[in-house]
Design a protein around this nucleic acid. Structure first.
Lengths: 210, 210
DNA sequence: TCTCCTCTATACTCACGGGTATATTGATTA
DNA sequence: TAATCAATATACCCGTGAGTATAGAGGAGA
């Protein structure tokens, strides 16, 4: 029996619908978890707390996710994927190296002020198991390399000064990660304002330009 | 009986000597603790571990320090004092605003690559009790204000471009805090090299100067 | 010499929280 | 209708680690 195109909403869920439900719930757990991890810290947040905030019980979380570390890893991975996407989409854009870098940095910075991005800065290697930490480092390194490549492009085409690429990438990352620590979404400054402001400062530097 | 100026070292310790001993041991506990906190994270480090690394037992630590949070607070406070000192000593130096700021940033950056400095970046508010966190924030704010004042001086005397002072301070802090996360003391790059390099990048910016 | 204080260890208590065993309900499928 | 499976709960286990009770050893001072 094929589903009617305009069938009235039925209480009987199909296979796909049930899978979508499941995915939705999983997602809800991750959202709730990442918020609490960011607010109180990973170790200070118990899965009982997370469950309570969703009106469910701890075993339900275990029904959707393997264990506490996996919850964290999924959160961090989401954040890292957003950052990678930010780095890669702008890479193929037109413009000289500096213009493309500016665009990447802007996006990167915005991600850092979002729940999953924040989770990335706030999660040190110490929180993860050896394997988790290795994965984490590998993904961060890939992002770092993306940014370095962009800086090199800019130096090659003359739009960026001939700086130490490695250090420059670290300086940029540090400055743009920092808002993940202090920015509060409900504060007076919008993420966009902060991102633009930060990027401009980093690109022009403190010394006045003649 | 007054102590002889060149008395032979005696096994009988005087009052001051005993107090000095005590202070020394306290210090040793903090050093050992901060190292382990930085390496494994605060929550993953038990006081039993710290004690074992010194060849002593946990109650001995409690003999010198009240509880685990106090150990952390003392470590963080030491770091914050170093940072404050870095900010304040250079404040009274000669030179225009930019020159003085450069000097402060350099010192700040070096502290961040030292044990107690690292502890400051790695310790989020989440690790501390409400009172601890409040103290922590207050001290960090004071340092931030010091740096902002310096930036304002520089803008006033024309040695720094007319930027958003608040954002500039955040960008600087972020970039200079970051090495506290990734720099390893035994690595190939010396702290001095990193500090100089970082500060130069931040001051001149990425865009080439005509 | 007797007492007190300092320093240290052994051996405990206890809460917290990650993780699980098991039961229940209701829908799906054979 | 029986058997199965997904989703959820209650009630538990148990390791870890913060913090403590207690005791002993040895020097300091009276």
């Amino acid at each position: 029996m094929a589903p009617q195109p305009n069938a009235a909403p039925s209480p009987f869920r199909s296979r796909e619908e049930r899978e979508r439900d499941r995915e939705e719930k999983r997602e809800a757990v991750l959202r709730a978890a990442v918020r609490m991890f960011n607010a109180r810290g990973f170790h200070a947040t118990s899965l009982d707390d997370v469950a309570a905030s969703l009106g469910i019980s701890k075993p339900t979380i275990y029904h959707y996710l393997g264990n506490k570390e996996q919850v964290l890893i999924e959160c961090v991975t989401r954040g890292l994927e957003l950052l990678s996407a930010a780095a890669d989409t702008a890479r193929a854009q037109p413009g000289n190296g500096l213009a493309r870098l500016r665009s990447v940095l802007r996006r990167y910075s915005l991600v850092m002020m979002d729940d999953f991005g924040r989770c990335v800065v706030r999660t040190g290697d110490e929180f993860l198991s050896a394997e988790g930490a290795a994965l984490f480092r590998a993904r961060k390194r890939a992002i770092d390399l993306s940014i370095r490549a962009l800086i090199e492009d800019g130096i090659a085409d003359g739009s960026i000064a001939p700086l130490d690429v490695r250090m420059t990438a670290f300086a940029l990352a540090g400055a743009l990660n920092w808002p993940g620590r202090w920015h509060e979404p409900d504060g007076p400054l919008s993420a966009e304002q902060i991102a633009d402001s930060m990027v401009n400062i980093l690109i022009s530097g403190l010394a006045p330009r003649a």
